[in-house]
């Protein structure tokens, strides 16, 4: 769906994107992760045809974003960062305008307006002017306009920034519900967010990609190990002994929490799934009650700091 090759964008002497290449398959949900000013928005603006790259090429759906800019824009629904929409237009009328400029007409247009109003939950404010809506609702209108023409590719720039926690959850759920309908490229500087919604993460720092993997793969790459939380109703020394003897387990660390009466252990291993299966089997075979076996994700905050440190100096 997206192919980006040696993309570079310079504004005067400022390099916003240095040399970026990546591919996104149809149907994937990809997170572009990086601190503010790392070049995420610039990459998105190039893909949406807002401005061309200084060097390199990008294709969306097999079309060049430069040569076939208008055709590419037809494939894309875009939600810019902290979108501000026309404040004096009512929601439904605004969505009609968006549909019309994307060449929807007649019944199809009416259907799509209803469908997106339904999908993002704008029914009760459909006749209200956008300027009078709360930030959460405005963000939904932004998402609705991006979805209006059933885009093959949805580009969302910081879709949850500035929202309160319940609105963040709503927007994330909306995005997850779109899985299977569109390929989604979303950017965020909230590291936790990508692990919740994305299949794959591309980490950008100062205009360069410093890592590209699944959230778990990135974990392993910086750490080289997997961590698993185990909660068992059983005698601590025996449980520790039994788990230590399992193949693949490197370390068993006691992880007691005052509020938790169960035996809590942190298992460090070189493999993820196979070791977790073996742990579950070992505990059940010995007649203890297994309460929980879950992977511990290294917080992406840690991960990001480590990845940046691993970069050669000069970047």
């Amino acid at each position: 769906m997206i192919e980006v090759r040696n993309l570079r964008k310079q504004f005067g002497s400022t390099v916003a994107v240095n040399d970026v290449s990546f591919r996104v398959q149809t149907g994937e949900i990809i997170g572009l992760l990086g601190p503010n000013g790392s070049g995420k928005t610039t990459i998105m603006r190039i893909l949406t045809g807002f401005f061309p790259p200084t060097a390199g090429t990008a294709w969306v759906g097999g079309l060049s974003v430069e040569a076939d800019s208008i055709a590419v824009r037809r494939l894309i629904g875009y939600l810019p960062e902290s979108v501000v929409l026309y404040p004096d237009i009512p929601v439904a009328r605004y969505l009609r305008f968006c549909g019309e400029v994307k060449d929807l007409t007649g019944n199809k247009l009416r259907e799509r307006i209803e469908a997106v109003i339904e999908a993002v939950g704008l029914g009760e404010v459909r006749h209200r002017e956008i300027g009078k809506l709360s930030k959460g609702y405005r963000q939904r209108v932004g998402l609705a306009q991006a979805l209006i023409a059933e885009p093959a590719l949805l580009i969302l720039d910081e879709p949850t920034v500035g929202l309160d926690p319940s609105q963040v959850i709503e927007i994330r759920n909306l995005i997850r519900n779109l899985r299977g309908q569109s390929t989604i490229l979303l950017s965020t500087h909230i590291l936790h967010e990508v692990s919740l919604a994305c299949d794959r993460v591309i980490i950008i720092h100062r205009g360069d990609i410093i890592a590209e993997d699944t959230a778990e793969g990135l974990n392993r790459r910086v750490q080289g190990v997997f961590q698993t939380l185990v909660r068992v109703d059983g005698p601590l020394p025996e449980v520790v002994g039994a788990l230590r003897s399992l193949p693949g387990v490197d370390e068993v660390i006691e992880d007691a929490v005052p509020s938790d009466a169960a035996t809590r252990l942190r298992i460090v291993s070189r493999e993820g799934e196979p070791v977790r299966k073996a742990i579950a089997r070992a505990i059940v075979d010995r007649g203890w009650s297994l309460i929980e076996v879950s992977p511990i994700q290294l917080t992406l905050e840690d991960l990001f700091v480590r990845l940046v440190r691993q970069q050669p100096s000069g970047h």
Binding site: A71, R73, P80, V83, V84, L85, D103, Q145
Partner: peptide, 14 residues
């Protein structure tokens, strides 16, 4: 000022 021009120029509009 509003920033809506960014959206406008990412629609299929010349």
């Amino acid at each position: 000022k509003l920033g809506t021009i960014e959206l406008l120029f990412t629609y299929p509009l010349r």
